[in-house]
């Protein structure tokens, strides 16, 4: 048995500890979080200044205090929570359905050339269909209630998740796959131990893009005869001439989208902590 000298082990151990140290520092520091709030706060200040000075008509662009007042009124009478919950629920269901379908089809077309030849041209063609073009068909198929809305959101979520998963699978480093092959991996082991983990970074990118599109598609979905939801609230503000409600809904969409994205980022950071990439280097420098 050949034993490596202790001095060499100690040297590499030191290197290992040095590399491992920033692991806990990967979470963004408090300062970075505050930096992210600077631009929205500056925009809010500019908005306040513009409306207070009378440079912009409040009928076109309502003052921030008017938006806050209307949102507070909706909060106090309990309506706002209902709108937020139903919209979030629709996005969550649409995201789950779209992700499930995209994962199944993306995995099939990414792994199997035969499945790719068979399915991918059609899926790519459907990707080019504008979101609103699905609305009449879904109303015809599913009616104007929840199923058609969730189906539309699922369509929005589907394409980025599908595309990122398929291209991620195809882009897995051939050299890593060969390690599986020389170790006699069958398809199941190859997928479980090499292809799936190697594809995760690309998959998470797809999930984030899909979720963002889910929030965009929920507006179109709530145009389909909704009586509740942030999209409905926005349309209601338009119909009743209340620009503060429209702007308030926009802001709530942005906040909800950001919170859900931050959740995905946090999960991704945990799952992909092994990545030795540019972001890890920046985290190390910051630590």
């Amino acid at each position: 048995m050949t034993i490596i000298p202790a001095a060499e082990i100690a040297a590499v151990e030191t290197r290992a500890e040095a590399a491992a140290a920033p692991e806990s520092a990967r979470a963004p520091r408090q300062g970075a979080r505050w930096r992210g709030l600077m631009l929205p706060l500056a925009l809010a200040a500019a908005w306040f200044a513009l409306t207070e000075s009378g440079a912009v008509s409040s009928q076109i662009f309502p003052a921030p205090q008017a938006v806050l007042r209307d949102l507070w009124r909706l909060t106090a009478n309990g309506q706002l929570a209902g709108h937020i919950v139903i919209t979030t629920w629709r996005v969550a269901l649409g995201f789950a359905a779209g992700t499930l379908a995209a994962t199944a089809l993306g995995a099939a077309t990414g792994y199997s050339r035969r499945a790719r030849d068979l399915l991918d041209p059609t899926i790519q063609a459907l990707k080019a269909v504008p979101s609103l073009a699905w609305v009449p068909l879904f109303i015809l198929w599913f009616g104007i209630f929840e199923t058609s809305k969730i189906a539309l959101i699922a369509v929005g979520v589907f394409f980025p998740v599908y595309l990122n998963l398929m291209t991620g699978l195809q882009g897995v480093d051939r050299r890593l796959v060969e390690v599986g092959l020389v170790n006699n991996f069958g398809p199941f082991d190859l997928i479980r131990h090499i292809l799936a983990p190697a594809t995760l970074p690309s998959y998470f990118t797809g999930l984030r893009a899909g979720l963002a599109l889910g929030w965009m598609f929920v507006i179109a979905a709530e145009l389909m005869g909704a009586s509740q939801g942030l999209g409905f609230l926005m349309i209601d503000g338009e119909m009743t001439g209340r620009p503060a409600i429209i702007v308030g809904s926009l802001i709530l969409f942005a906040i909800a989208g950001k919170i859900s994205d931050a959740f995905l980022v946090a999960v991704g950071r945990r799952v992909l902590s092994w990545q030795d990439d540019f972001a890890a280097l920046q985290d190390k420098e910051r630590a």
Partner: peptide, 30 residues
């Protein structure tokens, strides 16, 4: 590929998401 023949490549080809122990485990899944 057969179980009788093993190969070491020019580069280590370790799975970056697996520990050293689990990288070695890849050869023993059965």
């Amino acid at each position: 590929p057969t179980a009788d023949v093993a190969m070491v490549f020019q580069d280590p080809r370790l799975m970056p998401w697996l520990s050293v122990r689990d990288n070695v485990r890849l050869a023993l899944l059965k």
